[in-house]
């Protein structure tokens, strides 16, 4: 019953599905830590995926394409920052506007540049190189087809942990998220930190986008992101915005997606597994409050009964 080949295929698929999710949920997590409500991961990913393909097409250099992709999503992040940090507009509205706009914009430009609205691919496009493994066997099967950008995602989450929890920059960032008033009273330039955080989150989503367009296959499809940005939001929620929690959540959701593909013709249909991230978030929010309420009630009761 237990087929090792089957299993390693699932693991490999999970890792591949997980990487873009992980990048985006890390982006969401660090923004959350800095009190910036960023829901534009979809839009940033989309921008990156598109511009990397465009540059790839015109220069045939995968490295320039990667840079272009990241630059594109950072640009989007800066626009987001302008509206929600500087102008203090509603982060929800602006974020969603950016997401829907990016779909339209990329489709529009896709038509202008390449003359098609659906899928674009071209033999001259260069994909991301897959990492050649020095070993073989089961382990190699499980890590098959991963690019260094995929590995980068996991490195990024480790890096995020170190920066946030071991370096002074991370402390100050987290402090802003805990209490912006207190941080301000100590003279911290909150807006600068928030912009910087948005820029980094833009870069992370940029790497995710690059994975989508040049990772396992090299192309651009309309709506290539297909909701991953929102799943990343869910992963961020589930993982409590902690780099390691987010890693676990992303792996979990990546696994769901992988399994969803595999179990296509069995009882668990694709739509059901696709719903898992969202249902899980709702449950997590519920459970979180149930615990917090009990703690609060006890505290007040204690005061009234003491002395």
């Amino acid at each position: 019953m237990f087929n090792i080949g089957y299993f390693s295929a699932i693991v490999s698929s999970t890792l591949r599905m997980c990487a873009p999710l992980l990048y985006c949920s890390l982006a969401a997590a660090i923004c959350q830590k800095a009190q910036v409500f960023n829901i534009a991961m979809e839009g940033m990913m989309m921008a990156s995926a598109f511009f990397s393909i465009v540059v790839n097409y015109f220069t045939n250099s995968v490295w320039l394409a990667l840079l272009a992709g990241v630059a594109g999503s950072v640009a989007v992040a800066m626009i987001l920052g302008l509206f929600i940090v500087k102008l203090k507009a509603s982060p929800v509205i602006v974020g969603m506007a950016i997401n829907t706009m990016m779909v339209g914009l990329t489709t529009y430009l896709m038509y202008i540049f390449f003359g098609t609205k659906g899928v674009f691919t071209h033999p001259s496009l260069v994909g991301l190189p897959k990492v050649a493994l020095p070993f073989g066997g089961v382990a190699a099967d499980m890590l098959a087809g991963l690019t260094f950008v995929d590995y980068g995602a996991f490195a990024a989450s480790a890096l995020a942990f170190v920066v946030l929890y071991r370096m002074t920059v991370g402390y100050r960032l987290r402090a802003i998220g805990i209490s912006p008033e207190a941080a301000r009273s100590m003279g911290t330039p909150i807006e600068s930190y928030q912009f910087a955080t948005l820029a980094v989150s833009g870069a992370l989503c940029g790497l995710a986008g690059v994975l989508l367009s040049m990772g396992s296959v090299t192309l651009f499809i309309q709506n290539i992101t297909s909701g991953r940005g929102y799943i990343a939001m869910a992963a961020n929620n589930l993982g409590k915005s902690h780099p390691l929690g987010v890693l676990a959540a992303s792996l979990f959701f990546g696994c769901c997606q992988a399994l969803g593909n595999f179990l296509q013709n069995t009882s668990l249909k694709g739509q059901i597994t696709a719903s898992i991230p969202y249902a899980a978030t709702v449950l997590a929010l519920i459970l979180f409050t149930v615990r917090r309420r009990a703690a609060r009630k006890n505290k007040i009761r204690k005061v009234l009964n003491d002395r």
Partner: peptide, 12 residues
């Protein structure tokens, strides 16, 4: 798709 772009700008 120009419509969704205009709408997005409008919304923001």
């Amino acid at each position: 798709e120009i419509t969704s772009i205009i709408q997005g700008v409008l919304t923001m």
